[in-house]
Each structure stands twice: as structure tokens, then as C-alpha cells.
Design a protein around this nucleic acid. Structure first.
Length: 112
DNA sequence: CTCATGACTGCGG
DNA sequence: ACCGCAGCCATGA
């Protein structure tokens, strides 16, 4: 009856929701944490579906370089940056400032 | 069922 | 350092 979606997406959502305010992480990191070493694309794909989900701070999920690659999926190409700045994350030229400093690693923070 | 694309990453030349 | 290709899995036509 209901179109069941892969639990995989739920796992991604759950991790993203655990990202503290003012922090960011990368697709590959989440993928690796879930056991998908190279499933970074799937994480991004899950984020695309995340639009239908509430409380999914997808803006905190950026690529390996800290670039707001998915900004184009927030309706406006400036929405993602504004959301990050609202979290206290400084962004410039579509890139997260001090990305390495505010980087959040689930395997390191949660797996402590 | 097959083909093509995608919010990515890593390796090789 | 720069460019191009392959790998990963799911969704859509």
C-alpha cells in the first residue's frame, strides 16, 4: 500500500539530523559511516528525497571540499548559504569557512 | 528489462 | 597541479 523507501535513506536522514548546529559534514563521510565507502552519490540522492522530510538540515551536508554543491536544490542558489549562516557557519563563494574546523565526523563524534 | 543521470570520491596519467 | 575515468546504488523514462 505504501511505497516503502529503502531504509538506507532513513539512515542518512538520522545521521544528518544528529549534526550539531554550527557543524558540517560531507557525503562521503556519512556514506562511509553507513558502510557505503563509495556511496556518496546515494547520500546526495537521499538528500534530494530529504526535501519531503522535515527537520533535515541538508545544508549542513556538503561535499568533500566544503562546497555547497547542493545549493541548487534548495529552491534558490542562495538558500543553502543563508541557512548555514543562520546556523553560525560562515560561507563565502559557495564554500564553508573553516570547513575543517567545524567538520563533524559521526564515526568520531558518535563512535567516541 | 535496458539506458542514462545524479546534492560524490578516489586514482591514474 | 590539472584533467579524465571508473565505482557506487537508486530513480526515472
Amino acid at each position: 500500500m505504501n511505497s516503502e523507501k529503502p531504509n538506507y535513506f532513513d539512515l542518512v536522514y538520522q545521521v544528518v539530523r544528529e549534526i550539531p548546529k554550527g557543524r558540517v559534514t560531507s557525503y562521503g563521510t556519512i556514506a562511509h559511516y553507513l558502510g557505503l565507502k563509495s556511496g556518496a552519490r546515494m547520500v546526495g540522492y537521499a538528500m534530494n528525497a530529504a526535501h519531503a522530510m522535515p527537520d533535515i538540515p541538508a545544508q549542513r551536508v556538503v561535499n568533500r571540499q566544503g562546497l555547497l554543491t547542493g545549493k541548487n536544490h534548495f529552491g534558490t542558489p542562495t538558500r543553502m548559504q543563508e541557512l548555514l549562516e543562520a546556523d553560525g557557519v560562515k560561507v563565502e563563494n559557495d564554500r564553508v569557512i573553516d570547513f575543517e574546523k567545524i567538520f563533524w565526523d559521526p564515526d568520531k563524534e558518535l563512535g567516541l
